[in-house]
Write a protein that binds this DNA or RNA. Structure first.
Lengths: 240, 240
DNA sequence: AAGTGGTCTAGACCACGGC
DNA sequence: CCGTGGTCTAGACCACTTC
């Protein structure tokens, strides 16, 4: 049976989306109680385990807090934790319009280290896209993406100025993003990077290297991001 | 009923621990298949949902990979993702002996910003512990912990040179750690920090501020860590 | 076709919190 | 005491991968 025939979306995700929307529209505000598992089960006509699945997921995102014996509450409006989101998605989830300048978008075939990260032979053809992210007129991040050209050669022609790369991959290429492994460290902005980010030579920046996977096992993308960190902070939630 | 009477540990955690141990002892190596949900259910005499719960948790830690239609496999030996672990635990999980030098351990009462992070009044008494973390003779991290003195005044006298602070809290104070929210950015090592870490003035370091929560709602600890990032990398897994 | 993970049911008991 | 989340059962069907 299950109540997911109307559309392909699993019931627990529909419940999550309903709650997310109520929080977004400020119908539910930080500290408010979210309907309990039992209430959600009745409202959405699902079993307890399904309602529970929905709430557990929202807790891992940091959207709600659950307290045994007490209830589930809307969390303080921090950032979505441990959620794989593109820059565009981050911005629009905060009501801002993403701005970025495409510095480069072409096919290359001599970056063996990147190819290795993507699990490909050393001289594989790769789409390389370099973008400067801006808030207003101020640059705050430099992101370099690499994708296997075999599967995604067309994205060099995508309207990256306006469309989200994630959205393009999901809608135009039918890619289902699964998760990303990220490696974070600090480094110094040198030469061209410092110029682009408009900081002094040697200025510390946050470096994030992500390998992004789709649900089909495949490695989809490798991204190196360099962030001026006065404005932008990385938030993580770890569990015991 | 449930098979958790023998000890207080839930069945899904006992299954996880069993699998963790098999991986640790290299009985299961990267790429090997982990018993399927149905097998685990039979072996441990639990229901499918419980076996599933165990595997889902291990996947979120990055210990295993699950592929629909195919199976569950031991993941490449990366770091445990998004898992709240102390420095000591990280080291010993890699078979290394943790070394650290306690620089300071006393009670203070005039750090209003820190008190605020812990959700306490501005002039609350706090335990402050400053430690330099070493690999061999080389320093690589400077960690400053703050705890509410009202609950944890005794830890100033704990043998922090050898015992893990996490272990002390869990065993001596009956604290059950729940999760931590972390804020990560890059900054420059200046003055005393640069000297302690043995790097040049202005050298970029990774800064991690964590607020650690117990299962009893309470904020237990605030930690600021500064990391030379040539050796130590922060690994994160994000989900879509 | 057989086996796997993903979703789901309709209940159950427990531990805990707040009244 | 009642309501909450935490754990658990004993099944079910589906979508997917592998052979």
């Amino acid at each position: 049976m299950s109540s997911n025939h109307r559309n392909g979306t699993p019931a627990y995700q529909r419940i999550q989306n309903a709650i997310r929307k109520r929080i977004e529209l400020a119908h539910l505000r930080p500290g408010d109680t979210v309907p309990s598992e039992r209430e959600l089960a009745k409202i959405h006509k699902v079993s307890l385990m399904t309602a529970r699945h929905a709430l557990v997921g929202l807790e891992r995102e940091g959207l709600v807090e659950r307290r045994r014996g007490s209830g589930t509450f809307v969390a303080a409006p921090k950032i979505h934790f441990n959620k794989l989101m593109s820059y565009s998605e981050h911005m629009s989830s905060r009501g801002l319009t993403p701005r970025s300048r495409v510095l480069l978008s072409k096919i290359i075939d001599s970056e063996p280290e990147v190819a290795a990260r993507l699990g490909l032979p050393p001289t594989s053809a790769l789409v390389k896209i370099e973008r400067l992210r801006l808030t207003g007129e101020e640059p705050f991040a430099l992101e370099t993406c690499h994708l296997p050209a075999a599967d995604f050669a067309q994205v060099v022609n995508a309207p990256l100025g306006r469309a989200s790369l994630f959205a393009t991959l999901e809608h135009e290429h039918g890619v289902e993003l699964a998760y990303a492994d990220e490696e974070v460290d600090a480094t110094a902005a040198e030469g061209r990077v410092a110029e682009l980010l408009e900081v002094k030579q040697g200025y510390p920046v946050l470096r994030i290297r992500q390998v992004i996977y789709s649900t089909k096992v495949k490695t989809i993308m490798y991204v190196i991001g360099l962030y001026r960190s006065e404005h932008h902070r990385l938030m993580i939630r770890r569990f015991r």
